[in-house]
Design a protein around this nucleic acid. Sequence first.
DNA 1: TTGTAGGCGTTATCAA
DNA 2: TTGATAACGCCTACAA
Lengths: 348, 348
Amino acid sequence: MSAGVDERGTEARATIVDVARHAGVSKSTVSLVLSGSSLVAESTRTRVSQSMSDLGYIYHRGAATLRGAKSRVLGMVINDLSNPFFVEMAIGIEEACQGGAFIPFIANTVENPVRQLQVIRSMREYGAAGLALSPAIASSALELKPLLSDMPVVQVMRRLPGLRASIVAPENRFGARKAVQHLIGLGHKRIAFVGGFPAMSVREERLAGYAEALDEAGLPYDPALVIEAPINPSGAAGVAPQLLRSSTAALCFNDVVAIGLIRAFAAAGVEAGRDFAVVGFDDIDEARHIFPALTSVAVNGRALGARAAQLLMRQLASGDFAPENILSPTTLVVRVSCGASRQPGVSS
Amino acid sequence: MSAGVDERGTEARATIVDVARHAGVSKSTVSLVLSGSSLVAESTRTRVSQSMSDLGYIYHRGAATLRGAKSRVLGMVINDLSNPFFVEMAIGIEEACQGGAFIPFIANTVENPVRQLQVIRSMREYGAAGLALSPAIASSALELKPLLSDMPVVQVMRRLPGLRASIVAPENRFGARKAVQHLIGLGHKRIAFVGGFPAMSVREERLAGYAEALDEAGLPYDPALVIEAPINPSGAAGVAPQLLRSSTAALCFNDVVAIGLIRAFAAAGVEAGRDFAVVGFDDIDEARHIFPALTSVAVNGRALGARAAQLLMRQLASGDFAPENILSPTTLVVRVSCGASRQPGVSS
DNA sequence: TTGTAGGCGTTATCAA
DNA sequence: TTGATAACGCCTACAA
């Protein structure tokens, strides 16, 4: 009579007790092997390891956390994975985690606050050690707060007003200001700001930079030139005609909007850079490749994500969760779509 | 003297016992409320719920699985989130999960078998109910098998030979055959197959379709025209010169390769569709938007992911994990890059 | 270096 | 309709 497991057809999950019995040691010894303790003899360790793989043993982390072990899982709550920028950010977080021996699990909230709530709750329930959070658009700090208490959280990219948590974000205001200064330098007087909706923190910051640059140049801030639109290609397409009537240049909320705009323009026979100046934000990969190449404020999502993960892991290691603010630099990358440097087409 | 928790500055996590005490019931009742049992009186339920939010109670799923509760978490192990196709697939899985009350957690293995092993192990340890797996390129069924035993697994897109698990995949062979038939119909005699490496299941299937079409048309299968390359834009760029020397058309392993190729060609003054026929595979969003628009075999990653998730949830519900094969249809979408329908440029 | 004895938060079983 | 009690698998002492 062995473990009383093999008897039935259905295999019960092997436990450390089974492993201990199989290896001829006590379960404490197995536990020590599991935690990589140096107390255990080399020969014992190999014997126990062998037994574990023989039995197909799988560590039961639920039982472990119950007893007080701490988790090596980081939750990444990302608002929209269909935007390549956030994918880059997620990859940056992942890369940083590898160095720190954490395993990141991603959840995509699709800009849905309800789903975000579910997802964060699940991550807590499963014992994630910390959270990297890029909040969904319409989410509120109020509903999140009770879920996040006593857990280290780093906000990435987006800031939820009222949430006392660290944040890693780009210098949105500065970048937007530079971009608009550049457009002004090219002689534009009627410059629009396109995309997003009020109450989005990133938009507010970028819009502030836009307003600053206008102000510096003595140009009026015209609310009619600040145009709301969904953050997707068709959202941008919808406002293209309006833009053409009201302005000669636009700073777009981000590259997704800018690219949507360039395409909508192209479909209408309007060429960005020649007939209308377009500047994006984020500098995603496609910005380089679209025709005409998109001038954009580079954010480097990968570095942003990496910094967030590093901050999170540092907080986890030190136990000090005092909120920190990290601003990561932005730079204007001038290409063709703003009309600064007209380049001839590839051939023809 | 209350729970002996509030006394110290540090708040311990509230448990059902704390909730029970706060609500003046037993912990069994709280447990019943948690599981949504209809046995409990309405008034009791509200009182308990109130206590839970008062105390900031968070369900401890580790303890629950320890006792035998089953998990509502699905693990999605994705090989490469920087490829938009796999992002689409992940989104498809997520969407399907929402309907089924499962929460999917994504892990990106970055085509790294070691990382994949870690990630799958973690998911098991944390008690994921099932796995949707798009295996990393160099991973082997052998090393995965012990980790996956007794857990429902659905492979998506890619097939790991030797792994006894369901699979949801596109009709790669059929799609590739159609694409090559189309190129042959346009008069091409020397058609290359570009991208990927041997031992990739998807490539083998697409290559088989390629070979079939050649055979049907009485054209020779020339190994020199089957060109290996990494699945990324620069990989494609590296083999562009070779392609121009050896052939007049190419079926690319996927759109990422095709797009890389088109760009490399453009940089060299070669226009796809005019000077060389290019066909991709997957029909990602960008295929429509690149210039010239890419002819591609459409796979619909979102639907593929959704099917996989549905299958997984069905297996979870029924308890029957018998492997199933689901082939999802592919269709050739003819655009400009294959040269079938030359369109004038937008302006000029 | 290894073994023994609780207890972590939850659910299932049974009683009341 | 609610309450008491015994597991579940692991970790942390402490003893040997």
